[in-house]
């Protein structure tokens, strides 16, 4: 900081030194002026000392504001108003008022964006709630005529389309909420079966049509999570598992418990994911080869799942063997695993 201060004032310093040397030259060369050599050196030394003292004084005073300012700006939640008490010079004041002007413009713009974004999010949420009413009416109508399906064979296709719409509407709702996830969840004890069974029931149509066999073991274990968000995650995973399952394939749900964590395994017997694609499955919009061949793969399901599990402090992994199947593993860490460990 001193370096830049001195460099900035180099021309002034040089000017003073030049002025001093002109006076020196005058004293030495002008015939009529007679100065003793002591006085001569005294004058030079005094001027230089005064110059250094002056520079030190100005330096301390003028750098003070800059130092405070740069210290303050390191903190994201800075308040330029506070800087007023550190203003020492007119230059400080000018700089501060310019900074405040920029700050105001910037804050106004971000605020407008925030308002706009919140309005958008509220609109999406309201829209989802509104559209759930006609969707409910449609579902009830389909269900009312489902018993005698042989009379209305096309009803099956309508229901398929209904399920796709419902799934997309949910994705829309959860993606709008995702940015507020940190503030919008409630952790409570939930059994793994509460996460899995309602979703299998939801997809019953597709499972039955594919004659899938459901194999479930040890799902009575409790985990600490937000049921709403995690049910959504399991739904995304399950929807993939069913989509890529072969006819008469098996869907397995099982768990593993240690003092540190509970793992939920969701395994299908589908085509599997090529090894080179595995690291990319959580990327936004990644659909892979199988997905590109199936209509309706948005490449968002696993992307959302990853974001949600990360935010909730869980973990999601995908293991896969080509032509053998895919296993998705959800890991729920125990909240007091540290206590448990120290007791052991």
């Amino acid at each position: 900081m001193w370096k830049s201060f001195l460099r900035e004032r180099l021309s002034w310093i040089l000017f003073v030194l030049l002025w001093l040397s002109i006076i020196d030259a005058l004293l030495l060369l002008e015939y009529e002026i007679k100065v003793s050599s002591t006085s001569f050196w005294y004058l030079n030394l005094l001027t230089l000392c005064l110059l250094i003292l002056f520079l030190l004084w100005r330096g301390v005073k003028e750098r003070r504001f800059l130092k405070k300012l740069s210290l303050m700006l390191k903190n994201d939640a800075y308040d330029l108003q506070e800087m007023h008490s550190y203003v020492r010079t007119k230059a400080d004041e000018d700089m501060l008022s310019l900074l405040q002007h920029i700050d105001r413009v910037y804050r106004r713009q971000t605020h407008a964006l925030h308002v706009q974004q919140r309005e958008q999010q509220e609109y999406v949420t309201t829209w989802v709630h509104e559209i759930k009413t006609p969707l409910t009416a449609m579902k009830l109508l389909i269900n009312a005529h489902r018993t005698e399906l042989y009379k209305w064979p096309w009803l099956k296709d309508i229901e398929d389309e209904w399920m796709k719409i419902d799934g997309l509407v949910d994705q829309n709702l959860y993606s709008a909420r995702l940015q507020y996830l940190e503030k919008d969840y409630q952790v409570q004890p939930v059994s793994l079966s509460e996460l899995v069974f309602p979703n299998v029931a939801y997809f019953s149509k597709w499972c039955i049509e594919k004659k899938l066999h459901i194999d479930e073991k040890n799902l009575d274990i409790l985990v600490h999570t937000d049921p709403k968000w995690m049910q959504f995650v399991v739904r995304q995973v399950l929807s993939n598992a069913i989509k890529y399952s072969p006819l008469e394939g098996k869907l397995s749900f099982f768990s593993e418990e240690t003092p540190k964590y509970v793992k939920l395994f969701i395994a299908d017997q589908g085509k599997g994911i090529p090894t080179q694609d595995l690291p990319r499955v959580f990327e936004k919009g990644f659909t892979g080869n199988a997905g590109r061949k199936t209509k309706g793969a948005t490449g968002l399901g696993l992307y959302f799942s990853k974001k949600i599990t990360d935010a909730l402090g869980h973990r999601i992994e995908v293991n896969s063997l080509l032509h053998e199947g895919t296993t998705v593993i959800l890991t729920f860490y125990k909240p007091n695993s540290f206590d448990n460990l120290s007791k052991m």
Binding site: R146, T147, E148, L149, Y150, F197, P198, V200, A201, S204, K205, C207, I208, I214, E216
Partner: peptide, 19 residues
Amino acid sequence: GKIVSREELMRRLWEDEKF
């Protein structure tokens, strides 16, 4: 008095979480 398809029976069972 209505014919209930096997598929519908399965659906109802599954929707009641009996897979």
